[in-house]
Simulated scan of single mutants.
Amino acid sequence: MQRRNVMRAAVAGAGSVALGFTMTRPSFAYPALPGTSPYGALQAADARGLQLPAGFTSRIVARSSQTVPGTSYTWHSAPDGGACFADGNGWIYVSNSEVSSGGGVGALRFDASGNVVDAYRTLSGTRTNCAGGATPWHTWLSCEEVDRGYVYETDPFGDDAAVRRDAMGRFKHEAAAADADHGVVYLTEDVSDGAFYRFRPATWGNLATGTLQVLTQTGSALAWATVPDPDGSPTATRNQVANTKRFNGGEGCYYTDGICFFTTKGDNKVWAYDADANTLATVYDDNVSGAPLTGVDNITGASGSGDLFVAEDGGNMEICIITPDDVVAPFLRITGQSGSEITGPAFNPAGNRLYFSSQRGTSGSSSGGITYEVTGPFRGL
């Protein structure tokens, strides 16, 4: 049995898998307000143009249109959503390519010391692969951000061919977040009147068949309703169910400890759907918080600390943190790249390295993307 399939078999039947994180959020006094970062003030920009807290360092691990050093793989244009996967003593970082033709997914393999030892493709020939999400059985869901786009399940280890998952619906897919506690995968939709979905596989660990549902709201009551035609034609999936709850430009999506956090860029909000209580709360709202975080996009969480890390599409080109005590503050800033956006934040399995990309780099072109690693004393380690 191949390495990834061994790992998949070990977790597919598990009741709860945290994808390497043990986050808790003891405070729910939303929405978050500006405050002092637990990491302190940002320092002067380093040689790569990154402003980081004291004690943190950066390096560039890949550049679009250039061969990844030590490999034969040319790093893809417009790097977007990403995630890390354990690989023996090392790890793999996967990254989507948000180009309209020939998008797909690329991967970087690191050894135990953090050296890049391989780079390769895991998905080719798809369109505008924006965000996505990891599964507990160690696959990567790559989402097409186009009308009636698909979700593709890919193998980060490069052993198995990617599989299109039609049952997960055809719409302008953005991100996905697997919830092993409730046996569903949450999905966001990047349109101004988008919906928030969940896909319930017929068998957890197998996305070939299942039920696509949409979140509805009647008065103050939330409910999940089955989408009659996940194919989305002739009627878009978001318009098939009465009282569908609307979200303005769904973006990043991240699940932990009973809560799915997701972002909407049209109104600069971070949301928290509590799956146990079936409630929805606003974690961050720039109209309330004074807009230290704008262009909210991809989102991830840090091991142990409960901190959320939210990347900006534009704005000040920052990754901001939202702490469990509801403080929002910049964690890092990229200088000299105002024509770009930050994408794909993800921690390595140990939680001491953060990967992300500037999608268009200093050139403002999709061929100028830069993928970074930031190392330092992250909280909770």
Rank of each mutant, 00 (worst) to 15 (best):
L293V: 05
D313H: 06
S37W: 04
D160H: 03
G232S: 08
Q51E: 15
E312T: 07
P228D: 10
R25L: 12
K172P: 06
G315Q: 12
N239K: 13
P330K: 06
L42F: 05
V288L: 06
A302N: 12
E312A: 08
P69L: 05
D274P: 04
Y284G: 07
G258E: 09
S16L: 15
T264A: 10
D326Y: 08
P234C: 12
L187G: 01
F356K: 02
G13D: 07
H182E: 12
R238Y: 11
L19C: 11
A14P: 07
I370A: 01
Y372M: 00
A54Q: 13
V163D: 07
R379K: 12
G306M: 08
T209H: 12
L332P: 12
V270T: 12
F110N: 00
I299M: 06
F347D: 00
R109A: 09
T282D: 03
A62C: 10
F331A: 04
P324V: 11
G344P: 09
D155I: 11
A62I: 09
G219T: 09
K265W: 03
L108S: 03
V68Y: 02
G219F: 00
V117I: 15
R379Y: 05
G315D: 10
T323R: 02
A272N: 07
P79Y: 08
A180V: 02
V328Y: 00
G369I: 10
G13M: 10
Q2L: 14
W204M: 11
F28H: 14
T67F: 04
P34L: 13
S64Q: 04
F247I: 02
D231K: 12
I60T: 13
T209A: 14
G306I: 10
I322K: 00
S100K: 09
G301N: 02
L222P: 02
T343Q: 10
V151W: 13
S357F: 04
D231F: 13
Y120A: 00
F347M: 08
R25K: 12
G158K: 03
R198N: 09
D46K: 03
